[in-house]
Amino acid sequence: MTIKELIARTIELDSDGHLKNMNDWDESLANALAFEEQIFELTPDHWKVINYMRNEFKTKGDAPSIRKLTKESGIDTKTLYALFPKGPAKKAAKIAGLPKPKGCI
């Protein structure tokens, strides 16, 4: 467990760097979390992915598979990996304030 100082408030993260408390999330925090992942600007395409993941999580209780994400968010696989180069599943979920996805695909 680490506690990091982000955007002038204290946010608790788990050992993987995901938010401990999902209610801490807001758009400015997403920008800060992205910055931590060396994504220095969240483009409209990043937001498409983040918003889609958050909606999926709200209804299903888990982040979507990459396949579902690329089919339904309008962001194709190549773009997705370009947006989140260090692993789209983990990084996008982290920035979206969600726990690490449980699925294998």
Binding site: I66, Y81, P85, K86, G87, P88, A89, K90, K91, C104, I105
Partner: peptide
């Protein structure tokens, strides 16, 4: 295939 895809998902 699942392992290769899973690796890429993790940034491996």
């Amino acid at each position: 295939l699942i392992m290769a895809n899973g690796a890429r998902m993790e940034g491996i």
